[in-house]
């Protein structure tokens, strides 16, 4: 790389890195994410407070119960009750 091009590329990458710091990281802990509001009753992986855990959900598409889904696919999931959510409601 020529120096001037390299400098520009670095600066550009830094600018976009700084802009994406608040977004989900490329350094992933998991290749799944917790997706709320998409699990059928009894099919949830776990939940926030409402019931003990896996398989205990009593409602289809309960917005407080999640299902582990491949990372990045949650909010694009459509149910009769609306889209999947990354936070419980």
């Amino acid at each position: 790389m020529k120096n001037s091009i390299a400098t520009l590329a670095l600066a550009g990458s830094l600018a976009s890195a700084l802009a994406t710091i608040a977004a989900p990281s490329a350094f992933a802990a998991e290749n799944t994410e917790k997706c709320y509001g998409v699990a059928m009753k009894g099919q949830n992986d776990c939940a926030a407070g409402k019931h003990d855990c896996a398989g205990k959900s009593t409602m289809d598409f309960d917005k407080g119960s999640f299902k582990l889904v491949p990372a990045g696919t949650c909010t694009s999931m459509k149910t009769p009750e609306g889209h999947g959510m990354l936070m419980p409601a």
Partner: peptide, 12 residues
């Protein structure tokens, strides 16, 4: 991907 890795390094 430089920008994703820089962001990751700063985030972690």
């Amino acid at each position: 991907d430089l920008s994703a890795n820089l962001a990751g390094a700063l985030q972690t």
